[in-house]
């Protein structure tokens, strides 16, 4: 798609930015109903730009990729809400259902996820300053209530700024990567890389979730049954 054909009206941009704020706050602050998971946020981004299935494909791959980063305690993990939204929207708008678009959207989603995460760590440090003066807060508990709400408000603003600020550059980047003329060898390498990424994600996700190597019997069973069903249907 030529860059001049990108269609992102101001109202859509503003809506996506506001939605980014909502998704960002769901990630950690409130209410953690998991609309911030890339599977959901990328689907929403795709649906808003007219290709929910494309958005969900990007979201599902990002989801598997981020499964090895569970949010245990103070562990570092990507902020997938705004990142998934942007990646899904960009793929739907300029990805054109191509492998190049898919690779670009995954790249954008992963990088933005970590940018969001580092912005979140900064916010956590500010939260520390807001809530550290325990005696001052205890003297009038309404101060604590105000500061707690302020911290949540800052998280919303973080999401709005991230989405609003990075949506257009990310979409342009995806469009530029899609414009690279790829050879059959290039496509094969790209597909191999995405499948490798998928396999590595599955391996590490299994490690996070399952107790031991017994898990492999079940993973294999699931894969073989689906493969059998696909081949049986093809015949």
């Amino acid at each position: 798609m030529p860059l001049t054909d990108i269609n992102l009206p101001l109202a859509t941009w503003a809506f996506l930015a506001a939605l980014g704020g909502l998704l960002a706050v769901d990630g950690v602050s409130v209410p953690q109903i998991m609309i911030s998971r890339p599977l959901i946020s990328a689907t929403l981004g795709g649906a808003i730009m007219g290709n929910a299935a494309g958005g969900m494909l990007v979201g599902a791959l990002l989801e598997l990729l981020s499964m090895r980063h569970p949010p245990y305690g103070a562990a570092k993990y990507p902020d997938t809400g705004p990142a998934g939204l942007i990646a899904g929207a960009a793929y739907a708008e300029v990805g054109g259902g191509s492998l190049e678009g898919l690779v670009a959207a995954l790249l954008v989603g992963w990088v933005l996820g970590w940018i969001g995460a580092y912005a979140g760590y900064g916010r956590r440090r500010i939260n520390g300053r807001l809530t550290l003066a325990s005696e001052f807060l205890a003297a009038d508990p309404r101060r604590l209530e105000r500061r707690h709400r302020l911290a949540i408000g800052m998280d919303v603003i973080r999401g709005i700024l991230l989405t609003g600020g990075l949506l257009v550059p990310a979409t342009l980047l995806v469009a530029l990567i899609v414009l690279i003329p790829t050879t059959p060898t290039g496509t094969a390498i790209g597909a191999t890389a995405v499948v490798t990424l998928l396999a590595a994600s599955i391996g590490s996700a299994a490690r996070t979730t399952a107790p031991d190597v017994r898990a492999w019997a079940m993973v294999l069973l699931g894969a073989v049954m689906v493969l059998t069903a696909i081949w049986a249907r093809a015949w």
Binding site: A60, L61, L64, V195, A199, I202, M218, L221, A223
Partner: peptide, 20 residues
């Protein structure tokens, strides 16, 4: 784990489809 195996194949198929 069963679903993980099934989802891998299904997603892999979708990725291959994008390679045209």
């Amino acid at each position: 784990m069963y679903l993980l195996g099934a989802a891998t194949v299904l997603l892999g198929r979708a990725v291959v489809a994008t390679a045209d």
